[in-house]
């Protein structure tokens, strides 16, 4: 019997080089963070801590740490890419500084354009990818023109090109965000300044999506009040 088995020992016959190292699929995620002057003090400190907690939580998840491709863009004095797309295993949470107005429109356009160009890079490298996510966090309302941003964002959301969430804190103008995104059900108000809880939710959503299939419905407690379902 043992002689027979020795004829078919695939564990030995399949050499290590036979198993290919294909790149992990990526899930592009953009955090669009309001760093206008009104965020100074407690809000920006809490937001920074929350972003740090997100990086840590994603690092703790085996799949999310290599699949979530995270970029951080701030909008205040200017629209600035604080962290270009990278997995959390190869990047650090950026430092946030407050300054200036709220150029939200420009930030949305930048996020959508960067996502498109990142997708081109994936295709060139033969890397498959998940539907991109955008999280927009603000305590105010846009001070720039949002017409182009709104039309690009709505067509991306409706064309299922992006999964969008708008999160308002304190005196944020939620109606304006609902209008820009055309997706009132994807805009909600955060309880107080509980960014940590928010980013735990973001992290668990991303961990779920990195092992999901398109059309799966994720059912998650949203960090404001009730249960929240959406399709990935």
């Amino acid at each position: 019997m043992s002689e027979l088995q020795n004829d078919f020992e695939f564990e030995k016959e399949v050499v290590d080089e036979a198993l290919l190292d294909n790149p992990e699929p990526r899930c592009p995620v953009v955090l669009l963070l309001d760093t206008s002057y009104s965020m100074q003090g407690n809000p920006i400190n809490q937001l920074s801590e929350g972003v740090g907690a997100l990086y840590n939580a994603l690092r703790d998840d085996d799949l999310a740490s290599v699949r979530v491709d995270l970029s951080v863009i701030s909008f205040g004095q200017t629209v600035a890419v604080l962290q270009d797309f990278a997995t959390v295993s190869e990047s650090e949470a950026p430092k946030l500084k407050v300054n200036g107005m709220t150029p939200m429109g420009g930030a949305i356009v930048k996020a959508l354009k960067n996502i498109e160009s990142r997708k081109g890079e994936y295709r060139d490298a033969g890397i498959s990818y998940y539907r991109p996510w955008i999280f927009l966090i603000t305590d105010g309302e846009p001070t720039d023109n949002t017409q182009e941003a709104s039309s690009m964002l709505q067509s991306s959301i409706n064309g299922k090109k992006v999964i969008f969430f708008g999160i308002g804190v304190e005196n944020a103008n939620l109606d304006k965000m609902k209008q820009i995104s055309g997706s009132p059900d994807r805009v909600f108000k955060l309880n107080g300044l509980n960014f940590k809880e928010l980013f735990q939710w973001v992290s668990s959503s991303l961990a779920s999506v990195s092992s999901s299939r398109v059309g799966d419905t994720l059912k998650l407690e949203k960090p404001s009040d009730d249960v929240f379902e959406f399709e990935v």
């Binding site: 399949v14 198993l19 498959s128």
Partner: peptide
């Protein structure tokens, strides 16, 4: 498929599949 076919070239890993095909030709 995720580790036996190249995601960039779509080429199967010969080294991977060969032992399984060779088994057919073993007299046992």
């Amino acid at each position: 498929e995720s580790f036996s076919i190249s995601s960039s070239t779509n080429e199967p890993s010969k080294l991977f599949f060969e032992p399984f095909f060779n088994a057919f030709n073993n007299e046992r």
